[in-house]
Design a protein around this nucleic acid. Structure first.
Length: 114
DNA sequence: GTCTTGACTAAGC
DNA sequence: GGCTTAGCCAAGA
């Protein structure tokens, strides 16, 4: 692979609007990586501390966080999401409400639907 | 080179 | 609804 792919991943993640979330698989597809979802996870894990990339908006399939509930990372990610208005259903994010639909978001739901 | 690891996913139970 | 299993693919040792 090339650093280009990594940059594309970061750009896709950065384009996720506040209050929305995307799964690793979705980000991978958007970035043109196919099913290399784990690669996305790897990019996230290696992000520098001061990065502008909103890694907390990236979730596992089904809206689960990639961390075990109760861990520091879990709480940090959940806190960031809740701060943006993302609601949790138990230990998962409600993808029906907050799942990122990319460009379809506006087309299907409309700006004022929310 | 091969082997292990991992911030994953889909399918099955 | 949740847990387990098998498959996936790139990075690091």
């Amino acid at each position: 692979m090339s650093g280009d792919e990594e940059e594309r991943v970061r750009r896709v993640v950065s384009s996720i609007p506040p209050g929305k979330v995307a799964t690793y698989g979705q980000v991978a597809r958007e970035a043109g990586l196919g099913r290399r979802a784990r690669f996305v996870g790897r990019v996230m894990a290696r992000l520098p501390a001061g990065s502008d990339v909103p890694w907390h908006r990236v979730l596992c399939a089904g809206g689960r966080l990639a961390f075990e509930p109760g861990t520091e990372s879990y709480r940090r990610q959940r806190a960031c999401l809740e701060q943006e208005g993302v609601g949790f259903a138990g230990s998962r994010v409600d993808l029906e409400r907050h799942g990122w639909r990319a460009t379809l978001d506006e087309l299907l739901w409309g700006p004022q639907h929310n």
